[in-house]
Amino acid sequence: MKSILITGASSGIGRATADTFLQAGWRVGLIARRADRLHDIAQGNARAIPLPTDVTDLDAMKEAFATFLQTAGRLDVLFNNAGTFGPSGTIDEIPLAGFDEVISVNIRGMFIAAQLAFAHMRAQDPQGGRIINNGSLSAHNPRPGSICYTTSKHAITGMTRSLSLDGRPYDIACGQIDIGNARTELVDDLNARAQAANPDAPLMPMMDVQDAARSVLHMAQMPPGANVQFMTVMATKMPYIGRG
């Protein structure tokens, strides 16, 4: 049975991806801070393992990985998904504490998860595995007022490239999925912020979050000799290509 660890599994893209992998027959480790939501996902499914953990806490993450591997025995895939958007505004309007929080979750948290996964994949027999980082369209083009989030997601692209290169000798593949406007709590919040600032602002085009989850499954199911290095999946009418 294939196994995957998903960070940020309690809501949004993480939760949809967890449901998709469980339906596909995988053993799924669920990492997030909200234990009640993780237990809701796992209810009635022995292949789902709730692991309530803060991704920025190295010791807690080590314990979560160890707990999962006691049952799964092997880690085939990490979906490095946990993230936060943080405060919106121009740089002079952003409190440093808000920036620090985004960097802690979106970079430190993803680094810790990748570090632990890489170490286990390198040591397990047979060696290897796959790390899928959740980037963003903001890893390429920012939206207004998103300097914290955009900075963090550009860093994730660098992390993805470095992991891909360093993982080659150990059969560890790394790819990045850049998701644009899947219908989640985060995107609903961005729409709410935009309409609070301007009640006449149009809602952003959105796609079903299951389309993003199925894309992650496709990346995870590639054979060992192939890798989706970068994938962009987005709402068709997003103003991303050109001026929209």
Rank of each mutant, 00 (worst) to 15 (best):
A182T: 07
G167T: 06
A173H: 01
T232D: 15
Q176W: 01
C174I: 09
L217R: 15
C174V: 14
A196D: 03
A212E: 02
P142E: 03
P199V: 05
I156C: 09
T236N: 11
S164E: 08
S215Y: 00
K153E: 14
V187P: 00
S162F: 14
P205M: 08
N133I: 07
D211M: 08
S138T: 13
D171M: 04
A235N: 09
A197S: 13
D188M: 06
G175E: 03
T157N: 10
I147N: 02
M204Y: 01
N191R: 04
Q229D: 02
D200A: 13
G158F: 14
A155C: 12
G135E: 05
H140N: 05
A139R: 13
A213W: 11
V187Q: 10
D189A: 12
V216T: 02
L190T: 08
G175C: 06
Q229L: 14
R214N: 13
D200F: 00
V233W: 01
S164R: 15
G145Q: 01
I132F: 03
N181W: 05
L186K: 06
L165F: 15
S138M: 12
R183Y: 06
R214W: 06
R168K: 15
A196T: 10
P224G: 07
P223F: 03
A212L: 06
M238R: 12
M234A: 13
S136R: 09
P205C: 10
R183P: 00
Q195E: 12
M222Y: 03
Q221Y: 00
M219Q: 01
A226F: 00
I131A: 09
L190I: 15
A213Q: 04
M207Q: 15
L203R: 15
V209H: 07
A213F: 13
G145M: 01
N191H: 06
D188Q: 11
N191Q: 06
S152F: 02
D208Q: 10
Q176N: 07
D166Q: 11
S164H: 11
L137E: 07
D166V: 04
G158C: 12
P205G: 11
N198F: 04
